[in-house]
Design a protein around this nucleic acid. Structure first.
Length: 596
RNA sequence: GCAGACGUAGUUCAACUGGAUAGAAUAUCGGAUUUCGGCUCCGAGGGUUGAGGGUUCGAAUCCUUCCGUCUGUACCA
């Protein structure tokens, strides 16, 4: 039991003895004290005035008096209005630090026996990934890692949209204009090659429309009748009939795309335990429609189409199967939800998908719950906001998308440029330098995209994202490298790092206890970030930790400290901070260097 | 039209879920350092939390009415 728990227990006892009131422990909580006031933890008494039958100040004072005499950790207290600020005894901080310092499982909570699937990325195979996908992938990866750290067993899944009219468009264009071009012959990454033909399709399609309209057709008709579109539709039919030639081309082009994606994923540092392909799942879900009809969850209209009535839940009636018996989007999603459960017996299922699909997932989850699925309550849509550019909205058709590969390349190049300018890499081999640039460039990018609350729409500012100062990834990476330098020196001169070496320490500076307080908060933050599916919570924490460390570093000497206990303690504190930063950054997918 | 999300220093974001004088970063201005790393640290200015009303001891947060921005509302995926 650490002293926070003993303080809470003390408050509970104080209510019992001073006010004859029983308050469940869950209702009591401590907040960190604002820095303008003296103390480390604050208890807010307002909510408990009914139990105390006294005014706020009197209640707080009575509680404070009780705590000071009965709880060892509480050295002193002060009362401001209804806020009881508690000053923690120095020895308690040192005790707490020893506890944190000796933990063998830093940043890993015990298993909770639950299994969760996190589906993210989910690309289309007709074009390369862009900035929006970066947010999706970084979020998905990080949330999966956070869930793992907070005790879940995690399955990372990718559902690839590898079929449909958009893929056929790329294929049709390739047939017309491809001249047997391949990634090898063109020097293009496979996904970029497919994307090139998707764009070509669009421009030729538009030209045909224009021609038809000049020939007298309405815009609407021209869109429907353009030969290229008809060809793509015909190709989709052939694909569904398993036409060998079409399937052959489809396999060939998708193969190129997967090679391209593999390279992109590798650089992004994300991975998957399972990959689902829509070409395998798009026919699923029809049996669920039958099930829903027999359970009375769905109903049939005169033309044979099947619907679900969600008006009681505040939504509309929603189609789940067309009149001709063919599937719609949500039909296969129902099927895939069941498939995921059959394959992995998951308790929870997280979908990392943009917020333009809020309505869709609302409907899907309500249906699965109505059908009584055991995993129904565990369905969660991690809905994230769009990424805007300073120039305005991203639009693929207008060519204002930011390509993921290009952006990553640019970030790494900028990191290289910055680092060379600062000239801190003497002694690095070429390979080490390259590795460092990669770490810094990707760290800057990931941190920039993850530090914002996922739910919120965010602005991507290219200039600001590659900054190395302020609330950035490289600032935190720098802090780690700096501590690593200290640890190297400590080892060299043989500083004793065992907890015993500072056993009799009794005086701490304020920045030291503040650091301990932060270090102790690590696992709570992991838990919070996992529960809210928000890597931003952890990112913010790591920034605060790095800042607090830098303050400590600026204020107190380490190797110039004469007292060997203090010196050992400060190096140990540095070590613990480095470990925490390293582990925390890994949970948001960022690596930290030993030197930079 | 209907539904939902959002609106916080010049800018980009926080605010531990209703708590204290709304905090960081950045930019601007001023300062520090015989130290183990000047990508560091300290300080200053900068706010009617879109507007009004309500609930509460207490509201950026909850309710309500406006205003603004965005998304969704396909027998598309």
């Amino acid at each position: 039991m650490n002293f926070q728990d003993s303080i809470l227990k003390g408050i509970q006892d104080a209510f019992a003895s001073s006010f004859q009131a029983t308050i469940p422990l869950e209702q009591l909580s401590l907040a960190p004290t604002k820095k303008e006031f003296e103390g480390s933890y604050t208890f807010v008494v307002f909510p408990f005035l009914k139990q105390s039958q006294l005014g706020p100040e009197a209640t707080a004072t009575q509680l404070g008096t009780y705590l000071k005499t009965n709880v060892a950790a509480v050295k002193d207290f002060n009362v401001v209005k209804g806020f009881l600020n508690l000053v923690v005894a120095q020895e308690e901080w040192i005790q707490l630090f020893k506890q944190v310092y000796s933990s063998a499982t830093l940043g890993q909570l015990p298993s909770n026996g639950q299994k969760v699937m996190v589906e993210y990325s989910s690309p289309n195979t007709n074009k390369p990934l862009h900035l929006g996908h970066l947010r999706n992938n970084f979020l998905g990866y990080s949330v999966a890692e956070l869930l793992k750290a907070s005790g879940y067993e995690v399955v990372k899944a990718n559902l690839v949209n590898d079929r449909g009219i958009h893929i056929c468009k790329s294929m049709v264009a390739y047939e017309h204009f491809g001249n047997e071009e391949t990634p090898a012959s063109s020097g293009l990454k496979g996904d970029h090659l497919a994307g090139k033909y998707y764009v070509l399709f669009d421009s030729h399609y538009k030209a045909q429309q224009k021609g038809l309209m000049e020939g007298g057709q309405s815009e609407e008709d021209a869109k429907k009748n353009a030969p290229l579109l008809l060809e793509a539709q015909e190709m989709l039919r052939k694909w569904e009939d398993q036409d060998p030639e079409v399937i052959g081309l489809w396999n060939k082009m998708n193969g190129w795309v997967y090679e391209g994606f593999a390279a992109t994923y590798k650089r992004m540092g994300v991975d998957f335990d399972v990959t689902y392909y829509e070409s395998n799942t798009y026919l699923l879900g029809k049996d669920i429609v039958e099930e829903g009809l027999s359970k009375g969850v769905f109903f049939k209209k005169e033309n044979g189409s099947v619907w679900v009535d969600l008006t009681e839940e505040g939504l509309d009636e929603k189609l789940v199967l067309r009149g001709d018996g063919t599937s719609v989007y949500i039909t296969q999603d129902m099927g895939t939800a069941d498939l995921k459960y059959q394959d992995h017996q998951i308790n929870k299922s997280v979908y990392v998908v943009g917020n333009e699909q809020d309505y869709h997932f609302d409907v899907l989850f309500k249906i699965m719950r109505k059908l009584g699925r055991s995993y129904g309550p565990g369905l969660y849509h991690l809905s994230y906001g769009m990424v805007d550019l300073p120039t305005g909205k991203m639009k693929s058709r207008e060519g204002t998308v930011v390509d993921a590969d290009e952006l990553m390349e640019e970030m790494v190049a900028t990191a290289a440029h910055h680092t060379k300018e600062l000239g801190k890499i003497e002694g690095f081999t070429e390979a080490q330098a390259t590795e460092l640039y990669e770490m810094l460039g990707m760290g800057a990018l990931k941190y920039f995209l993850l530090k914002v609350d996922p739910k919120k729409r965010m602005l991507f500012n290219p200039q600001e994202s590659i900054e190395f100062q302020g609330n950035t990834g490289p600032f935190i990476q720098y802090s780690h490298a700096r501590i690593a330098a200290i640890l190297r020196k400590a080892e060299q001169i043989g500083v004793n790092l065992s907890a015993d070496s500072f056993a009799n320490l009794s005086e701490l500076a304020e920045t030291e206890s503040a650091l301990i307080q932060l270090l102790n908060d690590f696992e709570r933050k992991i838990k919070m970030a996992a529960e809210e599916y928000s890597p931003a919570i952890l990112a913010q924490y790591l920034f605060d930790l790095a800042k607090e460390y830098n303050r400590f570093y600026a204020e107190l000497p380490i190797f110039h400290e004469k007292d060997s206990q203090l010196q050992s303690f400060r190096v140990a504190l540095s070590l613990q901070t480095a470990k925490t930063i390293k582990r925390g950054m890994s949970l948001i997918g960022i690596q930290v260097p030993e030197r930079m």
